[in-house]
Design a protein around this nucleic acid. Structure first.
Lengths: 210, 210
DNA sequence: TCTCGTCGTTACCAGCCGGTAACGTAGCAC
DNA sequence: GTGCTACGTTACCGGCTGGTAACGACGAGA
């Protein structure tokens, strides 16, 4: 137990123990850390990801991560918060007036899939990961519940009297779960063209909105 | 650091430190522990459940759990293994010959939902939990992949030339994810009658098998 | 060239939790 | 009664990991 090493000469002579990471501006480093964290959280979930690994993936050491983010939880929530309000937008500004139900659904699905492709990490953090303490689970739950409710409202509006009211919620749940799972499936298969996914999804969604 | 306490007289006098659990046969105790573990694993997932909590829920202490199960992982996998082969059975022995597609689908859904009601813990362990090391994740993945493939084969057979082959797999993925999520939703809402869930599910499944 | 703020490092602590050693004791077989 | 076996307990260890203290050094501005 060496209590205090002689302050000068960190390594013996000429052999640097660890390659020092080049010094860059704080903001930029913060983004690199956030990027690495997103990748790891998406792959291994909150509980399965260690701060040490995030630091290594960002090519720095742990205290650097803690300089930019107060805790593991804050880092995770900061990443999720960037996408908190994205989901409802797919159904929001859509011209449901003059367009056939079929083309309308396809347009929405295409926009949504483009988003998933561009933000796969956030999607996986939201819908693949289930770990974390109560606060984290509550956050994810809030986001996905909002998505489900927006979809439920959309269904109720489009389907009208065709669907008994007590079936709106289970149908919305079925669709959000199914679409979330389909998106995760697609994220793992970059070779599958978007049109195939749109087609498969449209076939299932159609009976709920018409 | 008391190295060795005097062997006799564990508590001072007359005040039992912990109410000793009544002694019962090993097999029966093992089942009680498995039952408690199933409840906790279903609610909090693998990583979120502590062996100490399982022991407490079974009204024993930790070493008793370890007498019946070698490790946390073995306990978890033992619970899952009981249901490993259940999923394909819903589509297996069904008389697809003389029955309309609609009644056939409804029969399958009803049998499946009855199973979910009776085995909610296993269902949640399979489809809500995502934590655990590689071996555990591989086990769950194998089970749900099997389910998806069986469903895909069913779709391919029923839909026939109606559906392009490259859409069979994403459709199966969409349905398994959707149905799994719907089941979890229903588990949390015992007041919802089975018929409502069957109706909502049938509406979505129909276009894939006809 | 000197100084100071920020970027980066090493080495460490503390708490949680899976797992175990060692020890009691209830009750069935005889 | 008296063992003997299996059921049950207390008390502990060790590793993993989130988080921190203390220190070093690069580089922009004076």
């Amino acid at each position: 137990m060496a209590t205090a090493r002689p302050p000068t000469a960190p390594a013996a002579a000429g052999a640097p123990t660890r390659r020092r990471t080049p010094r860059i501006a704080g903001d930029r480093r913060r983004e690199l850390i956030a990027l690495a964290a997103g990748r790891l959280f998406a792959a291994d979930g909150y509980a399965g990801t260690r701060m040490e690994d995030i630091a290594a993936a960002a090519e720095v050491t742990k205290p650097m991560v803690y300089r930019h983010f107060a805790s593991k939880k804050e880092l995770y929530l900061a990443l999720l918060a960037r996408h908190e309000d994205d989901l409802p937008t797919f159904l929001a500004d859509v011209d449901s007036a003059h367009a056939s139900a079929d083309t309308l659904v396809r347009q929405i699905l295409e926009r949504w899939l483009d988003y998933v492709r561009a933000n796969g990490h956030a999607w996986a953090m939201l819908f693949r990961d289930h770990s974390g303490d109560d606060e984290i689970q509550a956050f994810r739950r809030r986001v996905s519940l909002t998505a489900r409710d927006v979809l439920a409202a959309f269904i109720a509006e489009r389907a009208g009297a065709q669907m008994p009211s007590e079936q709106v919620e289970p149908t919305a749940e079925l669709l959000t779960s199914g679409l979330a799972g389909l998106a995760l499936w697609w994220i793992d298969r970059p070779e599958v063209p978007r049109s195939v996914v749109v087609e498969a999804a449209a076939r299932m969604v159609a009976p709920a909105v018409r």
